[in-house]
């Protein structure tokens, strides 16, 4: 998988928000690649810059956002050229063609984006005609097929959005994203507002569709437990920077960064024995702070003076057998997490 060229490769991407009091660095020097057929999970708290990174890579951020450096290389099968296309340097025409057709996005709370006064079918038709320039009959047929694909019965085609449940509306948005057979689908918390049963149903559907159609998924969420089950690889983001990246099995068995370790101790589990839960004390970081070194210092239990001089580059995890398992923390190793003294958690 890793031998071939990635479909989407984010290289050293930095995004900032221009404010009168200076730039807020929402993402800095992020490297992340997405291979064909792969599900990469992007995990972080609100304000960690995970959405900014994904939207920035597609240049969908509104002012005052500005991309301050980096490359976003897209090499889908339809680009036609031997070299990858840099989205950050692509002309407007190419950019418009890539978005949605090659790289589709399911936005956070997208299900509320449906127009309440138009039938679901007409909205999908509209989007399809506007972007694919399909003739009416063909678009009709494709719409029906798409809704079949995401498991919406045909008789619901004529419904208005308010007649559908939240899960159904989210399915409609996924159908819309898949309308142009994209090669990359970016999903920003697509199931956060849904109940667990519906969530699982939709996720299973997404994976099934992915296997069937062969697209890649960048899945953004704050719920680590979900990613461990769903993603092939997981990228952990904090304060606009990648903290750790690796196969989900490696992340689960041998988390290297203290933040990742904290995330893994944050969710109660239903299955198996009760675990020791501590969570991550403290509040999410303020991106206006420009202290050097690791941004996790104030909440880190392993913090030492040397942390303030860490340059935050990702290096292979010492002692991890995973290839491509990298961490930004040169101090803590997976072993250190295992020997830590258990503290009192909820009802333990």
């Amino acid at each position: 998988m890793s031998s071939s060229r990635p479909v989407l490769e984010i290289r050293d991407l930095s995004v900032a928000y221009r404010t009168p009091s200076g730039d807020v660095k929402a993402a800095s020097h992020v490297n992340l690649s997405l291979h064909k057929g792969e599900v990469v999970g992007l995990c972080g708290e609100s304000g960690s810059g995970k959405s900014t990174l994904a939207y920035g890579a597609c240049r969908l951020l509104r002012p005052p956002a500005v991309i301050t450096g980096g490359q976003v290389l897209y090499s889908g099968s339809r680009t036609g050229t031997a070299t990858a296309l840099d989205i950050l340097r692509a002309p407007q025409r190419d950019l418009r063609a890539i978005r949605w057709r090659d790289v589709a996005i399911v936005f956070q709370s997208a299900m509320n984006a449906l127009n309440p006064v138009l039938r679901v079918r007409d909205q999908i038709l509209d989007a399809m005609q506007a972007h694919l320039r399909l003739p009416r009959e063909e678009a009709h047929e494709k719409t029906a097929k798409l809704l079949d694909l995401v498991g919406i019965p045909r008789e619901r085609l004529r419904s208005y959005p308010h007649e559908l449940s939240g899960g159904m509306r989210q399915r409609v948005m996924i159908a819309m994203a898949l309308a142009a057979d994209p090669e990359v689908v970016i999903m920003d918390e697509p199931t956060t507002a849904l109940d667990v049963v519906v969530q699982r149903d939709i996720l299973a559907q997404i994976v099934e569709l992915k296997e069937q159609l062969g697209f890649s998924v960048l899945f953004i969420t704050h719920d680590m437990s979900l990613l461990l089950e769903l993603a092939d690889r997981i990228a952990v983001m904090y304060a606009g920077q990648l903290m750790e990246l690796g196969d989900s099995a490696d992340i689960k068995v041998a988390p290297a960064h203290p933040y990742t370790q904290g995330l893994l101790r944050s969710f109660p589990s239903l299955h198996g024995a009760r675990r020791d839960l501590t969570g991550i004390p403290g509040s999410p970081p303020d991106l206006r702070d420009t202290n050097p070194g690791c941004p996790f210092i104030p909440r880190c239990e392993f913090a030492v003076p040397a942390c303030a001089e860490v340059d935050m580059t990702l290096a292979p995890v010492a002692g991890s057998r995973g290839i491509g398992h990298v961490t930004a923390c040169p101090i803590v190793t997976p072993e250190m997490a295992k020997v830590r003294v258990p503290t009192e958690g909820v009802r333990s």
Partner: peptide
């Protein structure tokens, strides 16, 4: 317009 449905939501941080 309806195709603004495909834009990113504003004020996203």
């Amino acid at each position: 317009s309806r195709s603004s449905l495909l834009d990113a939501p504003g004020g996203e941080f």
